[in-house]
């Protein structure tokens, strides 16, 4: 499988990259390339120009500052997976990066790309919804911050303008008593999720759920935030019954379609099962 012809540019700075995007309406941004290149090989996409941002300096930040974990646009999945900081303080993020595609793909694939591509089957969107993360979009008039809740607008669609580049992802630093987990049901390693559930929460001193986020992968046209499930648990001591109730609501609030991975009914039920298991795991970690 051979891609159609295209032109290729490696702008050294963000403004130059943006200028190229402005000049070419059908240009595509190339970063890790692990979703884009397969699409080009299958000729599902035939952009005239690829703007490779991977040689732009300053986009590889992975550090905590000002109450946020800053993840630069060029940070790879493997960087997250191997980061002691992420492993110890952001277990949900570590879980997620650990199950994206396979180890070799993770050496190239970026977190920013995983979000900007807005494939509902991608794993990070649900995780970022659970975290209440933010993304930084840099365009001709500078940078703006977009809450993840308003970032995804539909199937493969985001709030990014054509001439904007997702330059950073920001994850809130964990509060005391935090725990999170990502559970992905897949047919085999490397597969997209049959269903995936991201849960992030923290417990107050009395053991009540203070903040909570639940995101669902690949059970709708875009990643879904399970708001009603969150509401059930917020402010409550998380009993098995409440967790089951939250899981049942997630089952109702997702919107899967049947495919080779299973019927809609199966996927809905898997959302319920995985939500229960993810919440239990997140709580276990919060209490540890």
């Amino acid at each position: 499988m051979i891609p159609a012809e295209f032109q290729y540019a490696t702008p050294p700075t963000i403004p130059e990259a943006i200028a190229l995007l402005q000049a070419h309406q059908d240009a595509k941004i190339l970063s890790g390339g692990q979703s884009l290149i397969p699409a080009l090989k299958l000729r599902l996409a035939t952009p005239p120009l690829l703007v490779d941002i991977s040689r732009i300096a300053g986009l590889t930040t992975l550090s905590e500052a000002g109450g946020w974990l800053h993840i630069g646009a060029l940070v790879r999945e493997a960087d997250l997976e191997e980061s002691p900081l992420v492993r110890s303080r952001y277990p949900l993020l570590h879980d997620t990066s650990h199950v994206v595609a396979d180890p070799l793909v993770r050496n190239l694939a970026t977190i920013a790309g995983n979000l900007a591509h807005a494939d509902p089957a991608n794993d990070h969107p649900a995780t970022m919804l659970a975290y209440r993360a933010e993304v930084v979009a840099t365009g001709p008039s500078g940078a703006r911050v977009i809450a993840v809740d308003s970032f995804f607008t539909g199937l493969f669609a985001t709030a990014l303008a054509h001439d904007e580049i997702l330059t950073e992802v920001r994850v809130p630093a964990p509060m005391a008593g935090s725990g999170g987990a990502y559970l992905k049901l897949e047919r085999k390693v490397g597969d997209f999720a049959t269903a995936g559930v991201a849960a992030q929460l923290n417990l107050d001193a009395a053991g009540r759920v203070q903040q909570i986020g639940i995101g669902l992968t690949n059970v709708g046209p875009m990643a879904i935030r399970a708001r009603r499930s969150e509401d059930v648990l917020r402010g409550q001591s998380p009993s098995d019954a409440l967790i089951a109730q939250a899981a049942a609501l997630a089952q109702e609030d997702c919107d899967p379609t049947a495919d080779l991975r299973g019927s809609a009914d199966y996927k809905r039920n898997m959302v319920r099962i995985l939500t229960m298991r993810a919440l239990h795991k997140a709580l276990e970690r919060a209490r540890a």
Partner: peptide, 18 residues
Amino acid sequence: SVVLDGKAVKSCTLFAVQ
């Protein structure tokens, strides 16, 4: 699979220009 700057990658999903 080849090793690119120390990391294993799939060389069918990378352009030579990259």
